[in-house]
Design a protein around this nucleic acid. Structure first.
Lengths: 225, 225
DNA sequence: TAATTCATCGTACATATGTTCGTTCGCTTT
DNA sequence: AAAGCGAACGAACATATGTACGATGAATTA
């Protein structure tokens, strides 16, 4: 004989759009979905939110659905989806791929080969190039602030060993154990290469062509603010 | 009489840990989970991955589970969870979520509400915040170059109506039909707000506090170069 | 006081779903 | 050729789940 608990119809009038109980339910669905990977069943919601009958949960779910907080497919169990936003249902767009984070640039990263791969991956739009030709680096220093490339930014480069004048490249300098990001300029007549910072506080560096190894061209940047 | 298709046991030996079929299944589960909000049923997997019998799917799920790519609760329908860390080692799945691109900032975007949603989505790291609280904007103008925010950059903001001094925010100005990205400063004594460009060519703008509406705080930026 | 609404209960029912079983068909190994 | 194995099939079954129905009590309104 299940003891009928008093209904305690929210002594706090809760004149809001969302009653406490319904807020609880929404939160529980969202939390479950997030932590466990799949949404709760009606009965699980009941248990978590102190509702002994599936019908009670059903009642609230229906309201939440009409209010647009929830979407569901009646024919499928656990087919719940919280609609806190209202935008992202059309999961279309922006195909993404993962590129390896090879480490810091302008810190000793040797040959910039896969050896430096830490396991960290960075998600970037697929149209940047074929997977496998791209890699990510974390920026150290402020030599490129003029191009909006700041310390700690993540840049993504496409692997290539040549570049055009004026492009931003990841380059290694002969027998230095590090690579840098700079704008590149050529003096083909004299077979020399200039790597130009975009921060006026730094001076361009000039090298013999065979002293500079181009690793790739910077094609993408992202920053957490 | 259902035509038994030839089993075509992967003419490519697929000496890998993950056969093509099982990779498909993992990807489908992950994708469904991501776009639809809840995992597929065994039969839905079968339909999507060309397996006519639920038993066939069951067979693969069991293997995936033993390999550690998948976790499930046998007693519950749709209780599937992809083990992302494990799966991502093999390039399946992504720690990425999609946020809606609401349009240009510093071009007429009215209330910055979902009305402006074009359907375009931007992929960003999941740890930026709960899905639904984030939105993306494309930058117009050069008023924030000092902070490395350039024309055509995509910024991602977290929806919030308050901010701390010095933070970069998306703000709307009273009765102007547009929003801007600026650093914010308060003069609480006089109840005024200053929106500061980071380009020295522009001058800060000062408003009464109730003339400025904060839409969100900029938390992420990406740029194609 | 009567009527209405909100929130809850328990029960019953249809079904979507997961699982098990036995079988078959290629391929590889013995 | 026989045996073993991976991968698929269909059918049958147990049940977890969603839903509908009717009833009840508290609070609010008429």
């Amino acid at each position: 004989m299940p003891d009928k608990l008093p209904r305690m119809a929210e002594s706090a009038p809760s004149s809001e759009l969302l009653t406490k109980k319904r807020r609880d339910i929404l939160n529980f669905i969202d939390h479950t979905q997030r932590t466990r990977g799949y949404p709760p069943s009606v009965r699980e919601i009941g248990e978590a939110c102190q509702l002994a009958s599936p019908a009670s949960v059903q009642f609230h779910l229906k309201v939440l659905q009409q209010q647009g907080f929830l979407e569901r497919d009646p024919s499928k169990p656990r087919a719940l989806r919280v609609n806190l936003p209202r935008a992202q249902e059309l999961g279309v767009g922006a195909a993404v791929m993962q590129v390896p984070m090879l480490g810091d640039v302008a810190a000793g990263l040797g040959t910039l080969a896969e050896q430096n791969f830490s396991g960290e991956m960075v998600a970037v739009p697929q149209h940047l190039g074929p997977v496998g030709t791209l890699f990510a680096l974390r920026v150290k220093g402020d030599s490129m602030v003029g191009d909006g490339i700041f310390e700690r930014d993540v840049v993504v480069a496409r692997r290539q060993s040549t570049a055009d004048v004026g492009e931003i490249v990841v380059a290694g300098i002969f027998d230095q154990q590090e690579a840098t990001i700079k704008r590149i300029d050529f003096d083909r007549a004299h077979n020399r290469v200039t790597l130009k910072p975009s921060n006026p506080a730094y001076t361009p560096m000039n090298f013999a062509a065979d002293e500079v190894q181009i690793y790739g061209k910077v094609v993408f940047l992202q920053r957490e603010i």
